[in-house]
């Protein structure tokens, strides 16, 4: 009785896992088109990816755009988050709605808007244009993560700092900022990934000049399944695995390291560890 649902669960887990891992052997395949299992293995398509400007340039573009998006998003979102979380004011609900709204928009709708609006501003096919569009799309994620962190921030820490003689500015610099650093980092990481992965808007506005990697991949899959795609896919998948596994490994290592001094008896206070699995990447980005 209990076995059947568990077996089903395992099957679904396999259903989720299989397609993820199939891209890895594909990237070493010698086959010029889709073929599985691969007839032979080599590194030729890796060499092709790293030397072909048609692939390296979009990669660089994507990195530049994602970096620009992250900086712009954090600059705009940080003060706004403090305003919404820390203050009670007329219009707070409206501000909250506006900051999360881009998340509820199907990206194809915004893609049309940006295509014509940024076109009027002569910003299509520029890095700046894509950065602007991606920033609007990244605001909700960055805001939600940062505000969750800020809500969890113990304001007594600031009170303590002030009672100990720190001016408001020094309190922010010495206490608020360092304590919230993981929150900022995760918020920025999500903004970065949001931009780096964004496909639909980029397809319509990035053009040849500022073509992003997802756009290049999309075009390439659509035209002819270029085997280099499996290389890019494998690299992206490896990057994701690295980002997710790094904190897990780090936590395991540091736990082992700190175990000798943790003694039983009195309860030890827990510090909230930022959860990389936080399902906040809710976007109608498809």
């Amino acid at each position: 009785m209990k076995l059947l649902p568990k077996l089903l669960g395992v099957l679904v887990a396999l259903f989720i896992a299989a397609p993820l891992f199939i891209v890895v052997p594909m990237s070493f395949s010698t086959a010029p088109s889709l073929e599985f299992p691969p007839p032979g293995y080599w590194l030729g398509y890796y060499a092709a990816y790293f030397t072909d400007e048609r692939w390296t340039q979009p990669t660089i573009n994507s990195l530049i755009i994602a970096f620009g998006t992250t900086v712009l998003t954090m600059l705009l979102v940080t003060p706004a988050t403090f305003a919404v979380v820390r203050h009670r004011f007329v219009g707070r609900g409206l501000a909250n709605l506006m900051l999360t709204m881009p998340m509820a928009m199907p990206h194809i709708v915004l893609a049309i808007g940006y295509y014509s609006y940024l076109g009027d501003l002569r910003l299509t096919q520029t890095h700046l244009g894509v950065i602007i569009a991606h920033t609007a799309l990244s605001v909700p994620v960055a805001f939600l993560i940062l505000s969750a962190n800020l809500k969890g921030f113990d304001r007594n820490l600031e009170r303590a700092a002030m009672s100990l003689g720190a001016t408001p500015l020094r309190t922010f610099r010495h206490v608020t900022l360092p304590v919230l650093r993981p929150g900022f980092a995760i918020s920025a990481l999500f903004a970065f990934i949001q931009s780096f992965d964004e496909t639909v808007v980029a397809i319509f506005i990035s053009g040849r000049e500022s073509e992003t990697l997802p756009r290049k991949m999309f075009e390439s899959i659509r035209m002819q399944a270029d085997p280099v795609i499996s290389v890019v896919s494998t690299l992206l998948f490896a990057a994701v695995a690295l980002v997710i596994l790094a904190p897990v490994v780090w936590k395991a290592v540091s736990r082992r390291r700190s175990r000798p001094d943790a003694r039983g008896g009195e309860p030890v206070a827990k510090e909230p560890v930022p959860n990389p699995c936080a399902p906040t990447r809710v976007q109608l980005e498809a």
Partner: peptide, 21 residues
């Protein structure tokens, strides 16, 4: 971890994987 990994992997990569499959 598996679910998260899938979640974070680009739509394009997962779409491509299904083309292979």
């Amino acid at each position: 971890l598996l679910v998260t990994m899938s979640f974070w992997t680009s739509f394009l990569v997962r779409t491509y994987a299904w083309m292979v499959l």
